[in-house]
Design a binder for these strands. Sequence first.
RNA 1: CGGGGUGUAGCGUAGCCCGGUAUCGCGCCACAUUUGGGAUGUGGAGGUCGUCAGUUCGAAUCUGGCCACCCCGACCA
Length: 492
Amino acid sequence: MSKGITSQTDDYSKWYNDIVVQADLADHSAVRGCMVIKPSGYAIWEKMQQTLDKMFKDTGHVNAYFPLFIPKSLFEAEEKNAEGFAKECAVVTHYRLKTDPQNKGKLIVDPEAKLEEELVVRPTSEAIIWNTYRGWIQSYRDLPILVNQWANVVRWEMRTRLFLRTAEFLWQEGHTAHASKEEAILETEKMLGVYADFAENWLAMPVIKGIKTANERFAGADETYCIEAMMQDGKALQAGTSHFLGQNFAKAFDVKFANKEGKLDYVWATSWGVSTRLMGALIMSHSDDKGLVVPPKLAPTQVVIVPIYKSEEGLEKIRQAIQPLQKALQAKNISVKFDDRDTQRPGWKFAEYELKGVPLRIGIGERDLENGTLELARRDTLSKETVNLNDAEHLIEKLLAEIQSNLFQRAQQRMKNMTHTCDNYEEFKRLLDDKGGFILAHWDGTSETEEKIKEETKATIRCIPLNNPSENGKCIYSGQPSAQRVIFARAY
RNA sequence: CGGGGUGUAGCGUAGCCCGGUAUCGCGCCACAUUUGGGAUGUGGAGGUCGUCAGUUCGAAUCUGGCCACCCCGACCA
């Protein structure tokens, strides 16, 4: 058992926190609700960024950057959006400090330096971006605009958790402008598809694509699409959202274009984002009591080589024996680390790399040199086998792919096992308490019912799955007729 | 923000009720023996007791403010 990691079965929430801190991913900072993302954590985030950024570019998007500050008057322009975020905004009111005349060496806010208009620290950037787009768009020839930005945003959350909910977080936000409703909806759905693809094929995390109910919809959107994932403890995590914003922001910021017929019309909008919350999703999808488990495609180090030796000469022999393999793997773009630190012993390194989640570990010692072998250990199954050095290159490539797909299948199986169909409210409550997971149940379509269920059970409607089969039934709460099942769960 | 709890060396802790400058373990440093799953021995370093103020001859200990973290609610990507 690893040092100081609470077992998942004892306290999942504590386990999560232990993993984040002990695997050196992130730490609490001196600022309330804000975290320091440490090199080990940031390296994984960078891999996510690189992958997503390429996916965005491959679908025709370009990057830009908009300001951190939004003048209050712009922020309030789209009423619903402003209302939705108002209670969690950080606001800049002054632009200068001065030394405190009462208390030398201390600073106070200079009352003389009050801003004419307060600046809102962006909780999301629709307002500043749509105010800017007004100047970019006159004609249908200027459309579509397909822009993404990588940025930090601030939402003054009351309760925070590392990666899952921090007051400041890193994300990307795509903001697109279109000439027609149909095109904007297609874009919204396309980007949801990109997120689902990324979640499943890189994070190895199965997701359900769906749309949010009116209650859960993004403030200012006509429709919010989402990908919902299930964590190991059965709780749901919203892993990404893609919003069809209709003409709401175009109207709020007066963004019109001349269409082919020469008539003026408001521009159609989408926005979509994923955040450092995906780090939390990654952790709670695959990791165990020994530490982090990172899918090979996102692992900063995919293979680590731990030499086992008794002398400097012994190490040198190993180094030379393993070098061709190391080079061959690197030539295939597999990241390999040869850990020749003399300051730690092999057993210590084994535990360390398990904690950090390196997918494959090679152990090679003098015994292996005689036999022409090495030991290969998988992080996902914790199994070990001794293989011929000559077969290793091929085998490692195969194993990395196998680990990637094994992690996905494992998570998929778990989601399947923890998804239940339910037609009775009492049983619904029992299921939530005893098993958790997703519950497919009928709902009458009203916000009132949704609210009541939330109040009584803490479960929310995660989404109405896309391509949901229609099925006549009765609302689990009100008994009113329903045409389809929706997904209920307790969520992060 | 409401209720409950916690804060002592890098980490985990004892001491606090009953005031007299801090205990133990892990980790760290040096040396030796070790190295195929978190080594062992010997020696050593490290603390304005979260922070600010108050009471007192004297505060980790008593009182108050503030900050941070954890759990439970309301809010949320």
